[in-house]
């Protein structure tokens, strides 16, 4: 009896940890997406490709140049940030006057381009990045892979850092101001182009960090970003587009829903949970959970 209850507790803890890990990954991706939404006013479909590119960049840095994990993480963040800034400069900045439909199509085109580019360079096969900490931590009868603890710790550190940056620094304030009102921000002397580039760079770096941290658990494939990005969309709709706190909370909610859904319902339909949740919520409340959609 006690042993069974104990086993249940351990399994429960495992699901909590799994949910927390995947939730942190989603939250990091959704954070970048929600920041960029403040600039673009459209969902940046190419964001998922930045996630994929980041993971592959780290893989190449480790495998071909022998970089260590942290160096690869920084390199991947730089590569994705660079690509994000390039796509902002070359494409989105020039489409500012175009109808939103055109931005969305351009974003989709970039997504297809980056994905195909990754596949052209690395092939369609699956790859794996070795975990930084392959150990299993044991504490009070509970076990946890160290890599998952690393993901959660790093993600929360990044979120806290981002929050401080947006909240406490002038540069961060310019980002928030531009998201609230681009024209107004320009009127008080904020360089809109600089803010756009900075925001894209941060979003790309966040996506790459999420991908590299998660890569030792998941596998690398050219389509690895697809599901993650779609779920990040779900998250920013549920959490309110442009809301940083909403992205974090939404990421964790979806992460937990998936890990518990996979465990108690069915692994087969794990990936549908997020979309089903969104469909359900928007069917009942078209304005979203926090009422910011029907503006």
């Amino acid at each position: 009896m006690r042993a069974a209850a104990r086993g249940r507790d351990v399994l429960f803890f495992q699901q909590v940890l799994n949910g927390l890990t995947i939730g942190c990954v989603y939250a990091l991706v959704a954070l970048g997406l929600t920041l960029v939404y403040g600039i673009l006013r459209i969902p940046n479909f190419a964001h998922g490709a930045l996630y994929t590119v980041g993971a592959y960049a780290a893989f190449a840095l480790i495998g071909r140049l022998g970089a260590n994990f942290w160096l690869a993480l920084a390199g991947a963040a730089a590569v994705s940030a660079g690509l994000a800034v390039l796509s902002e400069r070359l494409v989105f900045a020039r489409l500012r006057a175009a109808p939103p439909l055109h931005d969305m199509i351009a974003a989709i085109a970039l997504l297809l381009f980056f994905e195909a580019g990754v596949q052209a360079v690395f092939g369609a096969g699956f790859f794996r990045i070795a975990p930084l900490f392959p150990q299993i931590l044991r504490f009070a009868g509970l076990t946890a892979p160290a890599q998952r603890i690393l993901i959660v710790g790093a993600a929360f550190a990044l979120m806290a850092g981002l929050h401080l940056f947006l909240d406490r620094t002038w540069t961060g304030a310019t980002i928030v101001a531009s998201a609230q009102n681009r024209t107004g921000a320009a009127l008080v002397g904020i360089d809109a182009d600089r803010v756009s580039m900075l925001t894209f760079a941060i979003s790309g770096a966040l996506a790459a960090v999420a991908a590299v941290l998660f890569a030792p658990i998941a596998l690398l494939s050219p389509a690895m970003g697809e599901l993650v990005i779609t779920k990040a969309f779900v998250i920013i709709i549920l959490g309110g587009m442009g809301s940083v706190a909403g992205a974090i909370a939404g990421g964790l909610v979806i992460g937990f829903a998936e890990s518990f859904g996979a465990f108690y319902v069915s692994t087969d339909f794990k990936d549908i949970i997020a979309f089903g949740l969104l469909t359900l919520i928007l069917s009942v409340r078209p304005q979203g959970l926090f009422g910011r959609i029907a503006r």
Binding site: P43, L101, D271, F275, L282, I293, A294, R295
Partner: peptide
């Protein structure tokens, strides 16, 4: 009936999710 109540960009995301549900289904 469900999705068209949403604004343009949310509609695009919503239908993207519907597409995934159909595919996974």
């Amino acid at each position: 009936l469900v999705s068209l109540r949403l604004r343009g960009d949310t509609f695009a995301i919503f239908t993207l999710c519907v597409g995934f549900i159909l595919y996974l289904g």
